[in-house]
Design a protein around this nucleic acid. Structure first.
Lengths: 346, 346
DNA sequence: TTATTTAATGTGCTCGTACACATTTATGCA
DNA sequence: TGCATAAATGTGTACGAGCACATTAAATAA
């Protein structure tokens, strides 16, 4: 009897036992006599039995809840793609009994983060998916989840202290290196470089580290590099800061912006009537793409927030539904964007 | 009665009819009285009923066969990723009753292609997935599939004549433009460029067209461009051809290789002790990556053959199993590869 | 009115797995 | 040997959709 799909019934028949016994052998539960075990085990070794995931899931008939905690996309457009990714995956998996609930918090307000996260874990979801942008506060939440046995999946950025969590995102340091390798290809041998942090968040330092490291490894490259942080809340203040900076560093003409706000630097340059300047930045925000097309930004690195969010939900859903193993960490490719390939990533 | 998952039984109960009647309304089959129809229809409009795809599939309990026709990866390593992609997807979907059978042909032998394709469609698979590298021969096969009502999905390259087929791959012309935009960023204003076709296949012309088009659109760029095809079967002949070419075009120092064989050009340069030369090519073959790391190749464009193959099978499987709609065409992003981000794509 | 056709609706089984429950067989002890 | 208990095995049902078949209600003909 050679088939390409065996069922428990088939195995039972072949081993000369009932399907109940086969079930007991497969799941190592209940009492099975030595002889019966051997009969079934022999058959199992001969054939490649893989249970039908569809039937299994139908029987289980459980709805799984995924609670997603992320910054309100209305407050910061950076998070719009994350929301879209979650939505898309949710749409795909709700018919299968995957229940996704979103909790938005204000990315400028730590207390709102705490309130929303409390809410999110209150009803004991099967898993919490979150972007941990506030370090110490996220720590608190992770501790709570640990105690209440709610598994956590992180995306966008890492939490180094909790190694056991699952992470879906990019290697930030490596993305700094990618930026550096691009910069290295398009600037002159003696050009000076500025690393610009706009409204700096802790994880942005990794990008600078990678960027600097890349050039340190190249003995033939000795660019002067300056790291600068701009923290003005408003545009006028920001432009003033930029103006002062370029006055005090007249020879710098290459700029690496470590987050999605490269467009702000371009706009500051425009208002200062600064025409040259090679800029590399992050993310496919509308103004960034506009300046990429105009040539003011040379390259963008795509952090693929949408894909991060989508993949996270996707992995979890397929894990719950069909028992697929979860990766402990998935580092997404670091995509390089130029005018000509930008539209494929939108 | 507000739930988040409704079953046919639920609807039947709510409408005060039997599940048979609900089934008839849902599928518009059999006879249903006006009053019964309205009762059920009212409920259906109130709730968002989506049939459980798992239960539906379990009932159908059909095995679907996907026959894959692709060049033997032992004969040309370019096709290894395609094979891997198919394998990976097959592995994922066999437990669901998706049966994948592969047919390898010799990419240098048209008759072997015809023999294998005959074989592939002989047993009436549910779909044929193929990379149509021989144009007129593929035409014949597509015609046969059309007559025997076997749907066809193409990947790697297009067949312009059969618009109704599904295509998963890249826009080749646009990838030429991407190469051009990269080239434009790293070469000098007056540098001369060669477009190199190694063992030219028809579809490689699209890449050249895109490349040339990009520079034509830039009025401030007036690079002299030469298109050259090398067709030697062996390495010695090839190196001679290259030697002659660079002697007769001493001022050309930028090279766009339109397929995965950029490493051959690098090796020819090495044997000729030519040290300069900016090369942009395609695909993450091992020798290509080696020369990318050594700096001899500046950029590679990733055609993502593995992903093409994987996605094709994936789309088909999810279509068969869960009724997801098939895209008529999916153009994958054109990934730019440099030393620092190469390993993520392997 | 009653028999007969047709329309309308309900019932019950299938798919493969998981698990509760029922039944049979073996073992221990008086 | 009888009887209680435990061990081993078999049986039956649910999950949700889909479809064949059975049943009932309505319409028509005799």
């Amino acid at each position: 009897m050679i088939k390409d799909k065996y069922t428990i019934k088939d195995i039972a028949q072949m081993a000369g036992v009932s399907k109940g016994t086969v079930d007991r052998v497969l799941h190592k539960r209940g009492k099975v006599s030595k002889s019966a075990f051997e009969k079934v085990d022999k058959i199992l070794k001969e054939i490649d039995y893989r249970p039908n995931p569809i039937a299994r899931n139908l029987k289980k008939n459980k709805t799984y809840s995924i609670h997603v905690l992320l910054p309100d996309p209305h407050k910061d457009p950076y998070w719009i793609p994350a929301n879209e990714g979650v939505l898309e995956a949710a749409n795909q998996f709700t018919p299968f009994g995957i229940l996704i609930r979103k909790y938005f918090y204000d990315p400028t307000d730590k207390s709102s983060f705490l309130i929303q996260s409390e809410e999110a874990i209150l009803s004991q979801p099967d898993v919490l998916l979150m972007a941990p942008i506030f370090e110490s506060e996220s720590q608190v939440i992770l501790g709570k989840c640990c105690r209440t046995k709610i598994p956590v999946v992180l995306f966008n950025n890492h939490m180094n202290t909790f190694k056991e969590q699952i992470f879906i995102g990019q290697d930030l340091k490596q993305s700094g290196r990618v930026a550096a390798s691009l910069m290295g290809k398009i600037i002159g041998e003696n050009d000076e470089i500025a690393i610009i942090h706009i409204n700096k968040e802790p994880h942005m330092q990794s990008k600078e580290n990678g960027f600097v490291e890349f050039f340190k490894e190249k003995p033939d490259r000795n660019h002067i590099m300056v790291s600068k942080t701009f923290n003005s809340a408003d545009k006028i203040g920001f432009n003033q800061e930029v103006s002062q900076f370029i006055k005090s560093h007249p020879r710098i003409n290459a700029f690496f912006v470590t987050n999605s706000k490269a467009y702000m630097l371009v706009e500051a340059f425009e208002s200062l009537e600064k025409k040259d300047g090679i800029i590399i930045g992050y993310d496919l925000l509308k103004p960034n793409i506009k300046y990429l097309e105009q040539g003011a930004i040379k390259f963008l690195i795509h952090q693929k927030l949408k894909r991060q969010a989508f993949l996270s939900v996707n992995y979890l859903a397929e894990h719950f539904l069909f028992g697929k193993p979860l990766p402990s960490q998935e580092l997404l490719p670091i995509d390089i964007i130029t005018t000509e390939n930008a539209h494929y990533y939108l």
